[in-house]
C-alpha cells in the first residue's frame, strides 16, 4: 500500500504499528504484512506447503502399499475382497459431496452470503460425521471377524503357517462352538475365508492408512466446526475469508487421499 508517486519513499514512521498513508487498513491485516493481498498470498502458500507435507506423510504408506503389492500381488487381490465395496463407494460419494459443499461455501462467502456459507459448512461437518459412522461399522465388522493388523490377525482353525511370526495364538475359536447360537449378527473370529499368511500385512497397511486418514477427517471436522461457529458470529466476510479457504484446501486433500485409497484398497 505504500506506493507513492516519485520520489520513492518507503517511509513508515510508525514502525510496525501503522501503515503510513492512512488509507485505513482492515483489522485482519497483520502489522508485518504490507497489504491484504500479501497476507492472503502468504497464508495460502503456507497452506499449500503444509498440504505437501500431508501428501508425503501419506506417501510413505502409499509407497509401502506399492512395494508390498509388487511383492505379493495375490495377497492384495485376495485380501481386498474382504473390504465392503458398497460401503467404500458410499463413503467416497459422501466425501466428494462434502468437498463440493466446502467449495460452495467458499463461493458463498466470496459473494458475501454468510448464512449460506454457514449452512454449507454445517453440511460438511455432517457429511464428515457420516463418513466416520460408516467407517466405524466397517471397522467393527472386521474386528468381529478377527481381522486385525499384523501379528494379531486371527485365522480359521487348521490353517498352516510357514511364517515364523504366526502360530497357535493366531487361531480363532473352533467354528462349530458358535454356530449353534444361531445369532445372525455374531461373527466368529477367523471366519473370513482368508488363508494367505500375509493377510495381516495387508490389513496393517489398511488400518494404518484408513486410520490416519480417519484422524485427518476428525481434525477436519473440528476445524470446519470452528469455522462454522465463527461464520455464524460474522467473523468472516467477502473481504476476509482466508481461514475458510485454507481449511477448505485441507479438506480437499483429505478427499483426494481417499480418492486414491478407495480403489487401491477396496477394488483391485
Amino acid at each position: 500500500m505504500a506506493v507513492h508517486p516519485a520520489p520513492i519513499t518507503f517511509d513508515d514512521p510508525h514502525g510496525g504499528h501503522g501503515h503510513g498513508d492512512g488509507a485505513g487498513h482492515p483489522p485482519h491485516l497483520k502489522h508485518y504484512f504490507v497489504s491484504s493481498e500479501q497476507q492472503f498470498d502468504a497464508s495460502k502458500l503456507g497452506m499449500w506447503l503444509f498440504l505437501v507435507t500431508e501428501i508425503l506423510l501419506f506417501g510413505g504408506m502409499f509407497v509401502a502399499y506399492g512395494i508390498y503389492r509388487s511383492m505379493y500381488p495375490e495377497l492384495f487381490t485376495e485380501a481386498s475382497t474382504q473390504l465392503d465395496t458398497v460401503m467404500g463407494a458410499v463413503n467416497t460419494a459422501v466425501l466428494l459431496l462434502s468437498s463440493l459443499t466446502v467449495a460452495w461455501s467458499i463461493r458463498a462467502i466470496q459473494l458475501g452470503n454468510k448464512k449460506l456459507c454457514f449452512w454449507l459448512l454445517v453440511a460438511t461437518v455432517a457429511l464428515a460425521g457420516m463418513f466416520m459412522v460408516v467407517k466405524y461399522f466397517e471397522y467393527t465388522h472386521k474386528f468381529d471377524l478377527g481381522i486385525f493388523p499384523g501379528e494379531e490377525m486371527v485365522y480359521a482353525e487348521g490353517t498352516t503357517f510357514t511364517l515364523p511370526g504366526l502360530g497357535e495364538e493366531n487361531f480363532g475359536p473352533a467354528v462349530d462352538e458358535h454356530a449353534a447360537e444361531g445369532d445372525d449378527h455374531h461373527y466368529v473370529p477367523g471366519d473370513h475365508g482368508l488363508t494367505n499368511q500375509r493377510a495381516g500385512l495387508f490389513f496393517s497397511i489398511y488400518y494404518m492408512m484408513t486410520g490416519i486418514h480417519g484422524l485427518h477427517v476428525l481434525i477436519g471436522m473440528i476445524a470446519i466446526g470452528i469455522l462454522a461457529v465463527k461464520t455464524w458470529r460474522g467473523k468472516y466476510s467477502a473481504e476476509w475469508y482466508t481461514p475458510i479457504e485454507n481449511v477448505g484446501l485441507y479438506w480437499h486433500v483429505v478427499d483426494v487421499i481417499w480418492i486414491f485409497l478407495f480403489p487401491l484398497m477396496y477394488l483391485i
Binding site: 500500500m1 506506493v3 482492515p26 497489504s35 491484504s36 493481498e37 466470496q110 473481504e239
Partner: peptide
C-alpha cells in the same frame, strides 16, 4: 510482486 494497492477482491 505485491506492490499494487491492497485488498482488491
Amino acid at each position: 510482486e505485491n506492490a499494487h494497492t491492497s485488498s482488491g477482491h
